[in-house]
Design a protein around this nucleic acid. Structure first.
Length: 625
DNA sequence: ATAGGGGTATGC
DNA sequence: GCATACCCCTAT
């Protein structure tokens, strides 16, 4: 793992938690950009796709975009459902899933311009810089198998990443929850069929002048394109129903009576409802987020942590440690450990957690100081803890502290909702903080400081420096967001966020924001490790873990001039086929001239486009017609 | 928010 | 130089 990055697992926990919350898509996009997500975290990717899917539903936006999402979900299901993860991780399948295209979607390299604070990425940091920070290079560097093996050792890889013994490690319950089941695949097929039909026949019902032309275009794109391609590749998403509809629709292209019949039959299909049902099913299967599970477990089981820790005391086996080569080879009673080294708590032994045991293990070895891509998330409570660990067995007070810290952070997360992004980071930090409490109090570290060997990068001041600026408030993606994933499971904490979110953004346009939309006001600043020791004035009076204000990178007047000059004009970006098709579909659905509506409806497709761009492009597309 | 004119970059 | 695509400005 690179030194200056937050632990990808922590990032994924945060995202996994927030994805179930009614947070605006734009904010979530920002999170996706700043948090390092493992390329192999397929379940999280699936959650992201499900959220994208859900953001389409409330506005009845059954478009080809929905088909694309469903196809991606299916691909992820295939990977998640595979028993031989080794095969997946190194194969073409994997590459297909984690291609640069996906990186664009998940990490939004375009948004990188914004995050890095300039309008011309090439000029200031270059596309290389973007890739380093967010793109595939970054992923490769921090999570790629080669690096992973070097840094973490194969054993750790085996534990952390989806591995051959996936089912064994994760437990059957977890597998059942996360991995795609046959039932769900069947449901997915039905949804796909319904959406494909709706996409096609919908334009016949709702279209205006050039109904037949548009219908034929959709037939070409969906049925002769997508469906035929899938059929050729024997993709399981293709059902018999789908093929029957394909035949009927093809016939409808040439035969008016068949066309009328198809339109009539299609009325029996409610694609939006089908998507809703599918989402409901998936939500029910996935259950609560890991963080909620942890807090619930801590609340319900007094002896959970203690048991785990005791277990650790007893079981000092190497499998609990990271075998990363940087780990000093001394036993747990060695008092010479540096502060910041993390203790390993084998949560699997006693922790009553039935799912994600692999991450539960990782949770317990969180570092005292964690970097966050140029920003640092550091230990908050340094008081009273010396450089070395006490080495004593944990007592009830320590357990209480762990629990209270986590619970307090959880409540604060929901109480302060003006800025969800820092909240997410706060949550991540709180997890780290809780871990720190355990680390300091629960004995010597058997594990290593994961990211900061020797503790060199630690901020001794105890402040948490996260270079993320507060973002503005944008309209909620949808009022129906109160029905987010896992709503049943997060009743106690969700309402606050939902209300506050709606309150903050009330009165604004209730247009759906694409999940991958970049936030125009969000930006981060480059961290300069060499200077910062000016934390005193930034320290928060509150006891909770806090995030300090970002510090802006110094920019020379020459560069400022360059930026201003370059800011005058965006970088030219060619329209993709998908964008063009989506624009056509949007015009067909909403009508020409409703550019803002179309943009909002397909925000994730029209990344970086404005309504004017859409208008101009339509002008170009129709210029010679 | 949208429409239309015009500037600029790019490819031929 | 021309055509085209993309982008920006401005009037409505």
């Amino acid at each position: 793992m690179a030194e200056d990055q937050i632990d990808p697992d922590i990032a994924s926990w945060v995202l996994e938690f927030l994805i179930r919350q009614p947070i605006k898509d734009s904010i979530f996009n920002s999170l996706l950009r700043v948090l390092p997500i493992s390329e192999t975290n397929y379940s999280l990717k699936k959650l992201i796709l499900l959220r994208r899917l859900e953001s389409q539903v409330p506005n009845c936006l059954v478009s080809e975009n929905v088909l694309q999402i469903l196809e991606q979900i299916y691909e992820l299901d295939q990977i998640l459902g595979s028993k031989d993860c080794d095969k997946i991780l190194g194969t073409k399948d994997c590459e297909q899933i984690v291609t640069s295209k996906d990186c664009d979607q998940f990490f939004s390299t375009n948004g990188c311009d914004h995050i890095l604070g300039s309008k011309d990425c090439d000029q200031n940091l270059g596309s290389k810089g973007c890739e380093k920070n967010l793109g595939s290079k970054y992923c490769d560097r921090s999570l790629g198998s080669k690096d992973c093996e070097q840094k973490l050792g194969s054993k750790y890889c085996y534990q952390s990443l989806a591995s051959k013994g996936c089912e064994e490690k994760l437990g059957s319950k977890y597998s059942d929850n996360i991995l795609g089941s046959k039932d769900c695949c069947e449901l997915l097929r039905k949804v796909y069929c319904a959406v494909a039909v709706e996409c096609t026949v919908g334009c016949l019902r709702n279209g205006d002048n050039d109904v037949k032309g548009e219908f034929f275009d959709v037939v070409k794109r969906v049925w002769r394109g997508r469906v035929r391609e899938m059929e050729g590749e024997d993709v399981g998403l293709v059902s018999e129903d789908l093929l029957e509809w394909r035949d009927d629709i093809e016939a409808a292209v040439w035969d008016e009576s068949v066309c009328l019949n198809v339109v009539e039959r299609s009325k029996e299909i409610d694609a939006v409802e089908a998507v809703r049902m599918y989402l409901k099913e998936e939500k029910a299967r996935m259950g609560p987020s890991f963080l909620e599970l942890v807090t619930d477990t801590l609340k319900s089981n007094e002896g959970g942590v203690q048991g785990a820790i005791c277990s650790r005391e007893r079981d000092e086996s190497d499998q609990c440690r990271r075998n990363d080569g940087e780990e000093p080879e001394h036993d747990n009673n060695d008092r010479t450990y540096e502060k910041g080294k993390a203790v390993v708590v084998d949560t699997e032994k006693r922790y009553p957690m039935t799912r994600r045991k692999h991450v539960a293990r990782k949770r317990s070895r969180l570092v005292t100081s964690c970097s966050f891509r140029g920003a640092k998330i550091t230990d908050v409570d340094e008081s009273g803890a010396g450089p070395s660990c006490s080495g004593h067995l944990p007592g009830t007070p320590e357990i209480k502290r762990v629990k209270e810290a986590l619970e307090t952070s959880r409540l604060e997360l929901h109480a302060v909702v003006k800025d969800p992004l820092p909240e997410a980071l706060l949550l991540a930090e709180s997890v780290i903080s809780v871990s720190n409490v355990a680390n300091k109090d629960l004995g010597p570290p058997g594990d290593q400081n994961l990211d900061l060997p020797g503790g060199q990068n630690r901020d001794k001041s105890g402040e948490a420096n996260v270079a993320v600026e507060k973002m503005d408030c944008e309209p909620p993606g949808d009022q129906n967001r109160s029905k987010y994933f896992g709503a049943d499971n997060v009743v106690s904490v969700q309402s606050g966020v939902a209300n506050a979110g709606n309150g903050l953004c009330s009165g604004q346009i209730n247009a759906p924001k694409g999940l991958m939309e970049r936030n125009k006001t969000a930006h981060t600043f480059e961290w300069d490790d060499s200077i910062d020791h000016s934390s005193e004035e930034l320290s928060d009076s509150s006891n909770r873990p806090h995030l300090s204000s970002p510090r802006q990178r110094r920019v020379s007047p020459l560069n400022i001039y360059k930026e201003q000059k370059l800011a005058k004009r965006r970088k030219k970006k060619r329209w993709s086929i998908v964008e063009e098709d989506t624009l056509r579909a949007g015009v067909q659905k909403f009508g020409r001239g409703h550019w803002k509506l179309i943009l909002n409806a397909y925000r994730d497709i029209f990344e970086e486009r404005t309504e004017v761009d859409l208008k101009d492009k339509w002008r170009n597309l129709t210029r010679f017609e």
